[in-house]
Amino acid sequence: MSASPLLSTPAIGLPLLRRGKVRDVFEAGDDQLLIVATDRISAFDHVLGSGIPDKGRILTQLSAFWFGRLGEVTPHHVLSTDVADFPAATRSAAADLAGRSMLVRRTRPLPVECVARGYLEGSGWKDYQATGTLCGHHLPAGLRQCDQLPAPLFTPATKAESGHDENITEAQAAAVLGPDVFSQVKALTLALYTAGAAHAAARGILVADTKFEFGLVDQNGTARVILIDEVLTPDSSRFWPADQYAPGGPQPSFDKQFVREYLERIAWNKQPPVPSLPDDVVARTRDKYLDAFRRLTGADLA
């Protein structure tokens, strides 16, 4: 276990392009980017004052596992996770970058989150309770919270720079992306979810829902859709232990469950200043992320 969480990427000799809630993205030249996953954790749309040790390493190495495993479904943006392949300017920061960084191909990210849902929870459950539908999909009456859906659904959302992403219909997504790109990302999202969920189920984990991101690259004069960002991690997905699955209410999970419960317990108003987390919440959250990683990959964290 890391001695302390990495909350900000130290100077690595490359210009910073942008800083997200978890990842710092750097210009790496020649149409390449270096993505560094920190140990920051967000909840209720705010980055908290505490980090989760090794979280960035878990997210990076789990995504790398999935990029490799799902490479037959779709091409992706990863060029290398080996610091020896990173730009020479980063050599002095190799110890900080090892295990939590990816050298990737630069793309034009699509402005739509591509969400696949296999179970009825979260905003989908709220939508169903209010309307009997889920992002425009009509569902059978009488479904319970966390019931498995008759078939996985593609439920796109807008990307928000801050605040919540907003669910949109397939027609709205097609209007944003164009019909050709929309049909590609819908098919890829469902294929990736199906393949990932099957592997996870064999490892004792139910993937309730997950989001994928795609970008465009130019190839032989045409724009090609490829998979980017992170894949099937506890940050981008709802993972449930299969042996504890009991529809009709909330499920135990492998994500930020302990963090959210603590913040609700202290009645934080979800506005700055952001709180820090007690040691036991940090430790239990790290254990959940690490448990998911080990189950899914069959390996220990490098």
Rank of each mutant, 00 (worst) to 15 (best):
D209R: 00
D96G: 10
L177P: 02
Y262R: 08
G51V: 02
R260Y: 13
L70G: 13
R18T: 15
L277H: 02
R117T: 09
A292Q: 07
S162C: 11
A195L: 15
S123N: 07
H164M: 11
Q244P: 04
G118N: 02
P272D: 05
V281N: 03
L290R: 02
G122D: 03
A187R: 14
Q148V: 09
T297W: 09
W66H: 03
W268F: 05
V217F: 06
I58D: 01
L188T: 09
A43N: 03
A88H: 06
P247R: 00
K126S: 08
V115N: 07
R238M: 10
G163W: 11
G298A: 12
H46D: 09
A89Q: 10
V112C: 04
T107R: 05
Y193G: 15
T169P: 00
S63H: 04
T74W: 09
S4C: 13
P5F: 04
T131L: 15
D31G: 12
R19S: 15
R224G: 11
H137N: 03
A242V: 04
L6Q: 04
P156E: 01
D82K: 09
L277E: 03
R69P: 08
F65I: 04
R286A: 11
L33P: 00
G298M: 09
I228C: 04
T38Q: 05
R100A: 15
T189N: 02
V259T: 02
T189C: 14
G118P: 07
E166R: 12
C114H: 08
A208E: 00
L227P: 08
R238L: 13
V36F: 14
Q184L: 15
Y245A: 06
A267C: 12
R69W: 12
T81G: 03
D279L: 15
R57E: 05
S80N: 02
G215P: 10
T194F: 07
V25T: 11
L149E: 06
Q184T: 15
M1G: 13
H138A: 14
L17D: 06
R203G: 11
P250A: 06
Q145E: 13
Y245M: 08
G136K: 01
S162T: 11
E166I: 11
A174V: 07
A201M: 14
A157D: 03
G248W: 02
Y245W: 03
R108D: 15
A201R: 09
V259S: 06
A173G: 02
V207K: 01
L7N: 05
R238D: 03
M1P: 02
V282F: 08
D291H: 07
L149K: 01
A171S: 03
K270D: 09
A174I: 05
S42D: 08
I228Y: 01
V181W: 13
W240S: 03
Q184S: 13
R18V: 11
L14I: 12
V181N: 14
Q184G: 09
L134F: 04
W240V: 00
D24S: 10
G249C: 11
L110V: 14
A84M: 13
T155S: 07
W268E: 07
A208P: 00
Q184R: 15
L70W: 04
Q32I: 04
L143S: 06
L79K: 03
I226P: 11
D229F: 08
L232D: 05
L227R: 04
G68Q: 00
N167F: 05
S92N: 13
R105Y: 01
K270T: 09
F214I: 06
V231C: 11
A283E: 12
P15G: 08
